[in-house]
Simulated scan of single mutants.
Amino acid sequence: MSGAPVVVIGMHRSGTSCLAGCLQDLGLNLGEVNTAAPHNKKGNREDPRLWVVHDAVLSRVGAAWDRPPTEPVAWTVEEKAALKAVLAEYEAVPRPWGFKDPRATVLLDGWLEVLPELRLTASIRHPLAVAGSLAARNGFSLEQSLEIWAAYNRAVLGWRSRMPVAVVDYDAPDYEARVRAMAAALGLPSERPMPFRDGELNHQAVTSPPPPEATALWDALRAAAR
């Protein structure tokens, strides 16, 4: 299983970049990814070539990253061919390898047709922290942010009901230990230094309970991360 690719999924602004960066510190090879961005001091650790593939699939079904589909998305032959063309360039990436893009959370049906051995990890985060981050970056309202947060995280739990998904809470006090345990389960050298994790990256610490409409989903997500 050590050669099977790893994907980091989860809602945008939910610590997926941190999880990908930490797993990269611990030996997961991500290929050519962004290592700096205006709203990610250390980069979002994403491959822009995969954005193009994912955005095209989302656009075809009338969706977007901030208007996620609510039903499974069947990929066309052409879309799977476009994905395979990008993945062909990953042949040169040392193993173990993986990728991260929150969009994949709602598009994994096509990925699993191309790479059925894919292994899933996910990062979750308090809905109000995500909403605060989206308000700062995108100017989204609380209602809009919570709707997007719910759609992505329902997808995370949906995948977890079908296959193993290692879930970590971005704000867990023992985050480092949890990520190292995740890495060990993935066959990565979990004892390596993990400098990517940086408390200065978290600008949305939240101590308030989630809004009532998000409580049940947040409780389910926290249970999945235990």
Rank of each mutant, 00 (worst) to 15 (best):
Y170Q: 12
L23M: 07
P94T: 03
G62R: 00
P210H: 01
M1F: 09
E32M: 15
T105V: 00
L112T: 02
A74N: 12
V93L: 05
W159A: 02
E113N: 05
G139V: 08
A214I: 00
A166R: 15
E79R: 11
L26G: 04
C22L: 14
M11A: 10
Y152D: 08
V73A: 11
L118G: 04
S123H: 04
G3V: 14
R45D: 03
C22T: 14
L107A: 10
A185S: 14
L26F: 08
G199Q: 08
N34F: 14
N153I: 00
M163K: 13
A64C: 03
V73R: 06
D47T: 04
P38V: 12
V130K: 05
Q144H: 14
V167S: 01
Y152A: 09
V93S: 04
K100L: 05
E117R: 14
A216Q: 13
L221N: 07
P193H: 00
G199P: 07
L134C: 13
L115G: 00
K42N: 11
Y90R: 13
A74G: 12
N29G: 07
G43D: 00
R95V: 12
A129P: 09
Y152S: 03
A131N: 07
I148L: 08
D219P: 10
R67A: 11
L217R: 03
A172S: 14
P209E: 07
Q24N: 15
A185H: 15
E46T: 09
G158A: 06
V7C: 10
K80V: 09
H126P: 12
R125A: 03
R60M: 10
G10V: 06
A166V: 12
D171R: 15
L108V: 05
A64E: 01
E78Y: 06
P102E: 07
R125H: 05
V53G: 03
P102R: 00
L83I: 00
V33H: 07
A181F: 07
L201N: 13
R60L: 10
G31D: 04
T207F: 09
L19G: 03
V156T: 06
A223R: 15
N29M: 06
G132V: 05
A181Q: 15
E117M: 11
L30P: 12
A129C: 08
